[in-house]
Simulated scan of single mutants.
Amino acid sequence: MDKKIGKPKASATNIFSLRFINTDSVIQQFANAVHRDMGINVAPIADGEIHRVNDPKGRRHNANCWYLLHLDNGPAGAYGNWRTGTQFTWCAYQKEARSPGDRLQLDAALQRTRQQRHTQRQFAQEQAKLKAKAMWESALPATVYHPYLAQKSVPALNVRELGGWLLVPLYDTSGELVNIQRIDLNGNKRFLKDGRITGCFGLVGAPALPQSGRLYIAEGWATAATIQGQTRSPVAAAMNCGNLKPVALALQGAFPDLELIVAADNDHRTPGNPGITKATEAAQIVGGGVVWPQRCGDDCACTDFNDVANCRRANQ
């Protein structure tokens, strides 16, 4: 007697392999999720590889965002922003439990993303460092006649000029030049693309970091030059208030005998006064001191030590 062959039953472990996948629909769902969470319009390539896309809030061709999408077994993917650290995971069938294999596959893809990003970042930083060194070696010592230095009324301390740009070198705690801040004739500032900034600084008033003694940490280079002129102590310019804490931690880790004093900008016209707030956080985490300039008057617009010095000079 012939056996009757019935239709195989779908099990929990093979539900994705038996499900008919509408590829176009899955890709569109993923694109919708990316747009919903990150505001980015993408036409996803579902090959399981990492693809870079632009952050709509960044500069043109920034390629700060990424995504990956695979259709094997349970269609799943991930996407995020390397600059902000934001990251999302996505699955086509959110209401159904994914198998351990699906989870492992996505985790492996995310690990590849992190490793690839790390490798890309290291390569890009190395290229920026080489460019910074080449620019620095090609430049000439700056003079006080550069419009930015003249406007700020500060001497040309450890800065150079190249094609109208004022070059401010950024170092890490080993003393290696890793980036350049370029300041044009109108005072506009640009770092080299992909160059290191976090934990790095410009150094004013010393050829190298001291092993001990007092070291001030300021935000901008002109402020650092002003403080150095007033105190005769070396000053590290963190370049922005968000970098004050990373610089303080890096300096303390490399030179624990330094007495660190954070010289804050007094952003008294900005809610929350981020200059003093960030400086205080940096000082507290390394057990250092914090100072900031006092307002010149009730209608004072000065925010940093350079502003105050120039304001007082003008009113003498």
Results as ranks from 00 to 15, higher is better:
residue 194 D to I: 10
residue 33 A to P: 11
residue 307 D to C: 05
residue 54 N to P: 08
residue 192 L to Y: 02
residue 224 A to N: 06
residue 178 V to N: 01
residue 304 D to M: 13
residue 297 G to Y: 15
residue 128 A to S: 01
residue 233 S to G: 04
residue 91 C to M: 13
residue 314 A to H: 14
residue 127 Q to Y: 07
residue 21 I to K: 15
residue 249 L to E: 14
residue 161 E to A: 00
residue 220 G to Y: 09
residue 228 Q to D: 04
residue 22 N to Q: 08
residue 215 L to V: 14
residue 185 L to E: 01
residue 226 T to P: 10
residue 7 K to Q: 08
residue 126 E to H: 06
residue 81 N to A: 01
residue 93 Y to T: 15
residue 222 A to D: 03
residue 245 K to E: 05
residue 108 A to T: 15
residue 306 N to R: 04
residue 225 A to L: 03
residue 252 Q to S: 13
residue 252 Q to C: 10
residue 162 L to I: 03
residue 268 H to N: 02
residue 122 Q to M: 09
residue 199 G to A: 03
residue 142 A to Y: 08
residue 169 P to D: 00
residue 290 V to K: 07
residue 46 A to G: 15
residue 109 A to N: 09
residue 60 R to T: 14
residue 249 L to N: 06
residue 2 D to I: 14
residue 56 P to M: 02
residue 241 C to M: 01
residue 217 I to A: 03
residue 45 I to S: 03
residue 24 D to Y: 11
residue 292 W to V: 07
residue 127 Q to P: 08
residue 268 H to S: 03
residue 123 F to P: 01
residue 314 A to M: 11
residue 181 Q to P: 07
residue 224 A to K: 12
residue 9 K to T: 14
residue 89 T to N: 05
residue 96 E to F: 09
residue 88 F to V: 02
residue 41 N to I: 01
residue 174 S to C: 04
residue 304 D to V: 13
residue 56 P to Y: 01
residue 151 Q to E: 07
residue 158 N to V: 06
residue 245 K to P: 02
residue 76 A to H: 08
residue 283 A to P: 14
residue 129 K to Q: 04
